[in-house]
């Protein structure tokens, strides 16, 4: 079954990249047909491809996209700084046997709640900028963290045992759940699962009230007594390390730089092609004159 040949109305494009001839896209190990639509770009004339790239350069295209990502990155970095400060403060209180300690297992869910707060805060602060973009940024956070853990087993290398690391991955999921919850703040028509709805409610309370009771409520909705206190404490420590590293910011910065360099490279290539084309045209004119 081929289910990937639809054409997005906004994209009927020319060849820039040669793709494999697998018109049905990659097939999953389970044998399911891929749902990924085939890119609209096919194989074409190399010169045409380069000229097409020039079109991209002329349009608002990548340049504006790069600016936009940069702006997002700055905003996100601010959010991370706030989150880190809050987390460190909470953990300090926990070590002194203060407020957080009295709340018992709540401390272990700080990281998870922080993820909820951050996501909701982004959703709230961005106001009218559009939920999809907010979701995209938050999804990038989730995806990056999950990939880092999934591939490099960062948590295990930091001394966290396998079981706790597995919990951390589940913890990352709460960020994603919060994504949907955050979106629902802007789109009340969205259908939510029971869990998502629960987290949404918790997230709203945290975002609005910000009090300890609200945090406990939000955390307990998700946690449901699943993690032990020791595991939760370890997870909170790891979460702190991850925040300090600001790995995500660096990654986005790298992507930005790559995009920027690629665009400059494209422009140089197009300029060279233009020169070649001009030379060829002049030669043809000369040849025609002699005939």
């Amino acid at each position: 079954m081929t289910i990937s040949s639809d054409a997005s109305p906004s994209t009927a494009l020319v060849s820039l990249v040669s793709l494999t001839s697998n018109s049905a896209g990659p097939v999953s190990p389970a044998g399911d047909p891929s749902l990924l639509p085939i890119p609209q770009l096919g194989v074409g004339d190399p010169l045409a491809n380069l000229l097409a790239l020039e079109t991209v350069g002329r349009s608002i295209g990548l340049k504006n996209a790069i600016k936009e990502i940069g702006h997002i990155r700055t905003q996100k970095a601010d959010e991370w700084r706030k989150q880190k400060a809050a987390l460190e403060k909470a953990m300090h209180a926990h070590k002194k046997g203060g407020f957080w300690h009295k709340l018992g297992k709540v401390c272990g869910t700080i990281a998870k709640v922080a993820a909820v707060v951050a996501s909701i805060a982004v959703a709230v602060c961005s106001g009218g900028t559009g939920a999809p973009l907010v979701l995209a940024v938050a999804a990038a956070c989730l995806s990056t963290a999950a990939f880092a853990q999934g591939e490099a087993h960062i948590l295990e290398k930091l001394g966290v045992d396998e079981k706790v690391a597995a919990w951390a991955e589940v913890g990352m999921s709460i960020g994603a759940v919060a994504l949907t919850g955050g979106a629902s703040l802007c789109s009340s028509g969205a259908a939510l699962t029971a869990l998502e709805h629960g987290v949404q409610v918790g997230g709203e309370v945290v975002a609005i009230g910000g009090g300890a009771a609200a945090i406990g409520q939000g955390a307990s909705m998700y946690e449901e007594g699943q993690a032990s206190g020791a595991e939760a404490d370890a997870y909170a420590d790891v979460a702190k390390s991850k925040l300090v590293d600001s790995h995500l910011d660096q990654l986005l910065l790298t992507i930005l730089d790559d995009l920027d360099q690629n665009e400059k490279s494209f422009r140089r290539a197009v300029s060279d092609v233009k020169s070649t084309t001009d030379t060829a045209g002049a030669t043809l004119l000369l040849a025609a004159g002699r005939v």
Binding site: V14, V17, P39, T55, V56, S59
Partner: peptide, 13 residues
Amino acid sequence: FARGIDPAELVYC
């Protein structure tokens, strides 16, 4: 060509 290229399409590709 006349309509230009969607940057997202390039990235997706």
